Structure formats: C-alpha cells, structure tokens
Amino acid sequence: MSIGNSPEDDRPSVGRALQQARTGAGLTVEEVSTTTRVRIPIVQAIEQDDFSRCGGDVYARGHIRTLARAVALDPDPLITQFDAEHGGRPEPTVPKPLFEAERIRSEPRRPNWTAAMVAAIVAVIGFVGFTLFNGGSKGADGPVSADGRANAEKKPAPAPNTTRPTVKPTVPDPAPSDSAIAGLPKDKVTIKVTALGQSWLSAKDANGRLLEDVLLKKGQSKTFTDKKRIDLVLGNAGAVQLYVNGKEVKQVGKKGSVARLSYTPGDPQAG
C-alpha cells in the first residue's frame, strides 16, 4: 500500500514541463517554432513526450535544450530527466592498446662517413678561426679613445619597462542626448530595442509586414522606423531596454513575460 508519492513521481514529464513553461510565458507553438526554427510537428510531438520525430537521442537533447531556452527554462534538469528515462548516454569506447608484436620497428641505419668527415672539417675550421680572433683581441679590456686611453666609461643599460599598459574601463553606452532626440524625424516613429538578457523579438509595420523575427542575445540591438506605426511582441520583456523616438520606456514588462506594444510618431505614451 502506497502512503504517498515521492517528489520524482510528482515531477512532470519533459514534454509536459516544456508545455507548461510555454503556456505560462504566453507563447503559442507557432511563435516558439519561429523563434527556435524547430518545426511545428516536432514541437507538438515533444510536448506529448514523443521523441521519435527528432531522429535520435542526440537530436532530441538538442531540441529539448533549444525549446527550454526559448521559454526561459533551465535545460539541464530536463536533459538529465530525458537521459534517465531513455537509458542514459552511451559510454565512450576506449581504444585497445597496441601489441608490441604489431609495432613496426625501424631498421638500424648505417653510419654516414661522408657527413662525419664534413662535420669534422667544419669543426676544425671553426676552432682555428675562434683561436685567431681571440688572440687578436687579447690585451684590450675595452674600447680605446683617440688619445690612447681605455674608455672605461660604459653606457648604462636602459632600465626595463615595468609600466603596465593602462586598461580603459568599459563604459556603457549613454542614453540618447537631447540633440540626438531632436535629430530624429518628427513624422516617423523610431524604435530601438536592446537585449539586456536573452529575449526574442517580433516587429511589424502599419501594413502588417514583418520587419524582424529574431532571438536577441545579450548586448544585441535592433532599430526600426516607420511613417505610421510599429507593432512589437517582446519575449522575456523584463530583459529588454526600449527607446521610442529617443526616449526610454520604463517598465516594459516583467522577466519571463510577453509584452505586445504599438507605437506611432510623437511621445511614447501616444502609442
């Protein structure tokens, strides 16, 4: 008789965990497929714990990791759970040692007497030249000046440069100045999106034409301009810095949430 379930029994499956995270983030299967470039049938199958469409365990792990990051979920516990439910990863094959009998032994080389004789002649010539050079330089302790006296003064060796190169600190990009804001066109809406963390972005113009649909990494930026209106969909809105017509929009959204925004020319509050 079972009194209670263990925490592992209450833990949702890999596909169920991905589905719950996607639903909690307010994303559809089509939006996740567009962001991750994983086809819709494969996303639907994985959420039903059907990994047969992935083409093998290696590809299944890659799809799980990609989908988990798209819905702001830690992929490592899901990979561990997947391995536990599917027999784990195969151990690497250890190469067998090579037998001594299989090694090819090189035949002993015969001595090259011609090369030995040439080396001996070169050594003798070098020794004679060295002896003559030292004999001619004996008695001179240093350079001699024009009046015959030895110049005992030597120039001091330059001191080693111990100064370390100065490393300039990285200064973040400042907010747009008043002159930059004044230089923006008044009859257009200009939007700049900068990712402070990983987030996905979808932008359309007033006619519904898709301008951009991309997963932004930390530090990446996108800028859009239109005469009438720009519609934005921001995933993980709390990790996005947004400027509309040169002015920063505060509190775009919470971390992990999806924000749907629309802006027109003029003040950001008019959008």
Rank of each mutant, 00 (worst) to 15 (best):
G55N: 09
A159T: 08
S257N: 12
R229I: 09
G87I: 01
A140K: 08
E8N: 03
A84D: 15
T223S: 11
V122K: 02
T264L: 11
T190R: 11
I3A: 13
S177V: 03
R103P: 04
K247Q: 15
N134G: 08
W200T: 02
D10Y: 12
P111D: 00
F133Y: 06
A152N: 11
D57P: 03
E153S: 03
N112K: 03
V244W: 05
N5W: 08
V189K: 03
T166M: 13
I79G: 02
M1Y: 04
L78V: 06
N245D: 07
S177M: 04
D9I: 09
V38E: 08
D187E: 12
D147C: 01
I191N: 01
G24D: 14
S199Y: 00
R22V: 05
A140T: 07
A237Q: 09
K192S: 13
V189N: 00
R22H: 06
S179F: 07
Q20Y: 04
Q198W: 05
S202G: 08
D74M: 07
L67D: 14
F82P: 01
R149M: 07
C54N: 06
E102N: 15
D74Y: 05
W200M: 04
Q251F: 13
R61N: 06
A72C: 13
L184H: 12
T223P: 02
K247M: 14
F51T: 09
T114P: 00
P158F: 00
V193M: 05
L232Q: 03
L196T: 15
E248C: 02
D187C: 06
L132P: 04
G129I: 06
A195P: 00
V118G: 07
V249T: 02
R89I: 15
T93P: 08
G4S: 12
S177K: 01
G56V: 01
P41I: 02
P265E: 02
A119I: 08
N134E: 11
